[in-house]
Design a protein around this nucleic acid. Structure first.
Lengths: 182, 182
DNA sequence: GGCTCCATGTAAGGAGTTACATGATTCA
DNA sequence: TGAATCATGTAACTCCTTACATGGAGCC
């Protein structure tokens, strides 16, 4: 890895999973992304496997073949320099992080005026339904809580819940502001 | 555009800007993205210009050269089928929209355990400072409120504010949960 | 034996980032 | 006249998406 260069969000997240839950297979890493209730992680093989390949090239993870398994299975573990890279990635937070992220619902709300009033109301209803379903999901305890750091995981999960709760309150206000029925 | 295919988020947002603020130049569209307080819109020329090119190919926008301007300046406007495409893009909301989006702060919090306690505290302080700065910015009235639909714009801005407020409350809770000083 | 899951990857194509390139207009 | 801003674009590179491809392990 070039000096001074930072890990991408995907690389950082993958390295974090390997650090906190290793030894784990690449397949297992991918399952974590697929089961994540947070949307936006695609977990496509064409993204995960090359990202792991890069982390191995940088020397941030080690790959150990599993004896007695005829599959090309390898257990991944974070190296010392991998843990150091994870620390740098976390600490070198950018100024723009902390602000509101791009949100497909919010983006669409800006242009609700292009819709007839009836469709505006059903859009907000659908968005609220989705948010309520997502909240129920986000409140489920993790199926596999094995991690080096369960406290921080709980803290992050609370963040997702509070985020969705805020969205639900906001959508109710939008209905008021646009004089739409509930 | 292939039948049944949806606009990407960037294409939808660009079309929305052109619909609500047109006639406007491509340059002007780009300024809107650059000045947006929402992070995640990069507004790079290599993304915006090709996106506008695609919208023109689909017939969703018209481009009118400005008489008396020696620059290659063209004013963009949404066509009828453009407005229709914008409506479809808004209404065909996906199930996953409504859940929590990927958030770089939240992703990092999951792995705070890799940091020594002191660095955990300063990470959360930095994140809180960033969020508070973002909140002040998000509360500023828009410099250029000319739009077809100021009410919806206000509603969307309120969403960004409430999002950041929820993040600040969450970060305070994270400090409590991890027994870190304020 | 067959189904599901475990397990790893590649190839083509599309979209975004960064950097570069060019030139006109406006205002002090 | 010089600087800032308006204005549009391209090229190389990287990364992600979608689809395809392959095969072993475990269980009924």
């Amino acid at each position: 890895m070039a000096k001074g260069q930072q890990l991408t969000e995907l690389e950082g997240a993958v390295l974090g999973i390997i650090w906190s839950r290793g030894p784990i297979t690449a397949y297992g890493v991918r399952q974590r992304f697929m089961r994540s209730t947070t949307r936006g992680w695609s977990a496509s093989t064409g993204a995960i496997y090359p990202a792991i390949e890069r982390l191995a090239e940088y020397g941030f993870i080690s790959r150990t073949p599993q004896a007695g398994d005829g599959r090309a299975s390898r257990k991944l573990q974070a190296t010392k320099s991998g843990a150091e890279a994870l620390r740098s990635w976390i600490v070198e937070i950018q100024d723009w992080m902390g602000g509101a992220m791009v949100d497909p619902i919010r983006t669409r709300v800006i242009y609700l005026g292009v819709l007839p009033a009836k469709d505006r109301a059903s859009f907000l209803q659908a968005a609220t339904r989705n948010a309520e379903a997502a909240l129920i999901e986000a409140r489920q305890p993790p199926l596999d809580p094995q991690t080096r750091d369960p406290k921080s995981l709980s803290a992050a999960m609370l963040g997702a819940q509070m985020d969705i709760e805020a969205r639900i309150r906001w959508l109710a206000k939008v209905r008021e502001m646009l004089d739409l029925p509930e």
